[in-house]
Design a protein around this nucleic acid. Structure first.
Lengths: 236, 236
DNA sequence: GAGTGGTCTAGACCACAGA
DNA sequence: CTGTGGTCTAGACCACTCT
């Protein structure tokens, strides 16, 4: 056998997806109740329930307790955008990752930073500026501020051996994060670091992380627009 | 009671997350087996299993059959980037959405398009160019090619009443999609349409969809960099 | 009240990893 | 072989919606 036998709940999921994909069940249409599917497949309700629950999580169907299950109105084309460690991302694609440390220092929070980190203005903040290269080509400029309370030894880290992302995940367990992706133009300093021209397009990701009680870190990640893109796929 | 009692499996999940979040269980550390948690909480194995299974899906822990469960090495900061219908997205934020139809026409596939759509060069393709506005401000320029086999009546659609995304999801059930997000510079035509200056930064999303046997559609969505960003959050 | 999904139990058998 | 997670059953009670 080349095809391993699928678990029962996967067969139910496949059946439902096939009905939807073929257009037989249109968005908004009712999906058979768990009891009906139970009969049809000769399975226990727990198994059918698992299948439908997973389809609901995937956004394929919408379930309302007491009412029923319907084919999701707008199939959310939702993919998981994984915000991964740049080192992992580069090496996984078979390239060589190197880091150039441009600055590692202790600074004082200005008014805006103080608000973001929920500290008072003038509080100590760690600051690092790193350039990440894939096979020698600049791919990400990482400008990061770190809350000393969350990672007291941050300034002593050897960033040629560990990335800030990796170090922080290890030492300041992540409880919350948010990101934003925008387009921008390279400023003079950014252009110089990334080896592009001033005014060239760049992708800017701003990322904030919370670790327990602390706002741990804020990073501005600048990617050369011509050399980097975020990609993803979605499968029904 | 302001706090509703949490389901048992949610309590188990919360406990595990709390242990990880507080740093008590570090990445790579073993998580108690299902049997142990079953004892500790006085629950059936199915319930404990559900909790751990969901944590695995969320990327909080890694499970290996026969081996055990460990705290995930790098907490994937993975959020679902939902590629939603622009109309939904704008109205949900309380703004008014309007569409300006710049072109709706039938064209012939050039070599590149033919390859993408898996058609022969010269085959018929539908083409639409729309400008989406939020409260009168241009927010997305949508340049889209559609496979007539997937949506024969595409040219007859009233795009002031329905967006192409919405129409296609309705008439060509989605089975697969892929996207790419890049930074670019506005060209002359794009700048004019979006009411920005030539050379201003733009976010460019390229999106392809497959519906059953057909490559259904390819769209190039251009957002003014200063007025749009992709955002997301992650919660442990 | 009938029908639906949400949760939970106390068992069971299996596939797989590691000693 | 023991311990682990993966799957599955045949019941059960509950919360909710709709009529």
């Amino acid at each position: 056998m080349t095809t391993t036998r699928l678990p029962a709940y996967e067969q139910v999921k496949a059946f439902v997806k096939q009905q939807i994909g073929s257009g037989a069940w249109r968005p908004g249409a009712a999906v058979p109740s768990e009891a009906a599917l139970q009969q049809q497949f000769g399975l226990s309700r727990m198994t059918v329930n698992r299948a439908m629950k997973e389809l609901a999580v995937e956004g394929v169907v919408t379930r309302v307790q007491g009412s029923g299950t319907v084919v999701a109105q707008l199939h959310r084309i939702s993919t998981t955008l994984a915000l991964r460690d740049i080192h992992e991302e580069i090496t996984e694609r078979g390239h060589h990752h190197a880091t150039r440390v441009l600055a590692v220092e202790s600074t004082r929070a200005d008014a805006g930073q103080a608000q973001v980190f929920k500290l008072r203005a003038g509080a100590r903040l760690f600051h690092s500026v790193l350039l990440h290269l894939a096979d020698g080509v600049p791919i990400q400029l990482e400008d990061r501020y770190v809350n000393p309370a969350a990672a007291p030894d941050y300034l002593g880290v050897n960033f040629n051996a560990t990335t800030p992302t990796s170090y922080l995940l290890e030492h300041a367990p992540l409880t919350q994060a948010s990101y934003s992706i925008e387009a921008g133009l390279a400023g003079a300093a950014e252009a110089r670091a990334l080896a592009i021209k001033r005014g060239d397009p760049v992708l800017v990701m701003t990322r904030g992380t919370v670790s327990g009680p602390h706002v741990a870190s804020f990073a501005r990640l600048v990617y050369p627009g011509a050399r980097y893109s975020f990609n993803g796929t979605f499968q029904l």
